[in-house]
Amino acid sequence: MNNVKDSVLNKIKQGEVAMRPRWHFMLKGVLALSGICILTLWLIYLLSFVVFALVTSGVIMIPAFGFHGLVEFLSALPWVLIFIAAVFIILLEILVNRYSFGYRKPLLYTLFAIISFTIVGTFVVSKTGIHELAMQRSVESRLPVMGHFYKGYGLPPHERISVGEILLINKNGFVLNERVEGRLNVTINDYTKVPTGAAFGVGDQVVVFGLRQEDEIEAWGVKPFYGKMFRPSERTEKMRFQEESEL
């Protein structure tokens, strides 16, 4: 007599063991695939936003100013978002490894595939201009939920990174119309690094690297700004003014 066979078949006959329906597994599969899709879309959104925020804030241009620039760049990176993106990548890796196309390949390959796909996705999303649109609405205070998120990362209050337009060239340097802070006097000296050469003119958009003290900046570096210049709307400036007055 076969104990295991009889025992299992008896349990099946008596209804103690029931077969799970096919839809149960299909639903699980659909949910897992949806999870992969949603996670991938969020990851692409997040990374494209990180790139957008780095360009818009001017942080991406800072490493060109040497060691100090690199240190500032590292401290100004949106580490929370990068950490969340890393968690998403790990979760995706785990989900992908549930499927044979995932676990059959070495982890390095699947990780490379995920990262490559995300980079391509990030590039495509960057080209759509979705973040520029959201940022524009954000500075105009017309983006209800994500407004602070966009403004917080796109126009962060860096005291060593200033972005604006040259209003006037003078003997010490130039006057900068900083997009948030307003007029600032920028001093250029022999130690100021200008990686692209010193030919700046009125109306040029620049990133100035240097400690801002009230309205003065002694520039450690100046570089053309290639991102889109977002300025807080008059309403935002008025609110800022009110806040400052109250303080």
């Binding site: 295991v4 299992v8 349990k11 077969m19 799970r20 329906p21 096919r22 149960h24 597994f25």
Partner: peptide, 12 residues
């Protein structure tokens, strides 16, 4: 025995 019970349960 548990293996075969699981196999039957998840056969679909």
């Amino acid at each position: 025995q548990e293996v075969f019970i699981k196999a039957y349960t998840y056969i679909q």
